[in-house]
């Protein structure tokens, strides 16, 4: 069991229509690719992280995995069964085993439900099979470390960290095999971020979950993810083991993201790879390597020819000139 992947994503694309008929005569596309062909798999007990700037397609990919967003190409296989394109009724069976956590800790909780109702919502949807709701509430709240008297509170009476715990409790209610968490630490204080990550880590071990964690905060990834993918304009530019990527980023974009993380140490000498700030529009994807417009190392070939994906020691990379250890950019570019 543990060998087979829980989730396999193969060449998935998600397109959105663009309502701008005026632009079409100028050769603009009438749809954009929010996710432009990504593949990965997650095994039981493993955590896979998706990292990238906002707009890179992370949330769209998560929604596509859960069937909230139709997939326009590629396939999503969950527990050995293809689930992309399934109808709502067929999908319902799979949704029981696949839990999603959304970005806003409080906003993802229904405002007129009490915590007790929220964490047992899955039983009301999928049938409670004679379960005792009060006992289930107590079990779930204790799993996430909340006192039982929270069962009567409403979401707006919770702090961000408490709301996040409720979200986690709700996600694991039906013993899922996969949890997809979109920015689980967004909007939380540092003192609480750790709590949530520890909780997710614990649950993964105790329940043998597979997890997909989405974040733009690299520091979070280091401590929770076994493998990670760096996403840019809807594609993976680098995939591999978290530790390997942290110790030796090969794609310039990965290196830039890593260096863009301010550390709480005033004495630390910083040689930062600064990127031009603006991410290109999906309506006008750059030619060649799509990162060349921001890449400090870009050369002529990067502008014209898209780099092929190459694999080396479990690392998949799309770059013409992968970085060596500790390599620095040739020149500094401002904002």
């Amino acid at each position: 069991m543990s060998g087979a992947p829980v989730l396999e994503v193969d060449g998935v694309e998600v397109t959105f229509p663009v309502n701008r008929p005026l632009l079409r005569p100028f050769g603009r596309p009438h749809s954009i690719k929010g996710v432009a062909g990504v593949s990965f798999e997650v095994k039981r007990g493993e955590t896979f992280a998706l990292v990238g700037e906002s707009g890179s397609g992370k949330t769209t990919l998560a929604r596509a995995i859960n069937g909230l967003q139709p997939v326009s190409a590629g396939s999503v296989t969950f527990e050995g069964q293809r689930i992309d394109g399934l109808g709502r009724a067929e999908m319902k069976l799979h949704r029981r085993r696949m839990a999603m956590m959304f970005q806003d800790p409080i906003g993802s909780l229904s405002p007129r439900q009490t915590v007790g109702e929220l964490v047992t919502e899955a039983f009301r949807i999928h049938g409670s099979e004679g379960r005792d709701m009060r006992a289930e509430t107590a079990r779930l709240l204790s799993l996430v470390g909340l006192p039982l008297d929270f069962a009567d509170r409403y979401p707006h009476q919770l702090s961000g960290g408490q709301a996040r715990r409720v979200g986690v409790a709700r996600a694991i209610a039906f013993n899922p095999v996969l949890v997809v968490a979109d920015e689980p630490t967004a909007g939380l204080d540092v003192s609480v971020q750790g709590e949530v990550l520890n909780l997710l880590n614990d649950l993964r071990e105790r329940l043998g979950l597979a997890m997909v964690i989405i974040t733009h905060n690299l520091h979070v990834v280091r401590h929770v993810a076994d493998r990670m993918a760096v996403m840019y304009l809807g594609r993976f530019v680098e995939t591999g083991k978290t530790e390997a990527i942290f110790s030796e980023p090969s794609h310039p974009y990965t290196a830039a993201l890593l260096s863009a993380n301010p550390e709480p140490d005033p004495d630390k000498a910083r040689d930062r790879i600064s990127l031009p700030a603006e991410v290109p529009s999906l309506l006008a994807r750059p030619s060649g390597c799509e990162f060349h417009t921001r890449c400090p190392w870009a050369r002529e070939i990067c502008r014209s020819t898209p780099p092929p994906a190459s694999e080396r020691a479990g690392r998949v990379l799309t770059c013409h000139f992968p970085l060596g250890p500790g390599e620095h950019p040739p020149e500094r570019i401002g904002l």
Binding site: M91, M100, F102, S108, S110, P111, E121, I125, R170
Partner: peptide, 26 residues
């Protein structure tokens, strides 16, 4: 498109349940 409605959909809630429990009371 509120997140809690998407969350209910992601858990497999039927349209009737989404409307009755998550939208109507609000």
């Amino acid at each position: 498109s509120a997140e809690y409605v998407t969350a209910a959909q992601s858990m497999g809630a039927s349209t009737a349940r989404v409307l009755r429990v998550h939208i109507l009371p609000n």
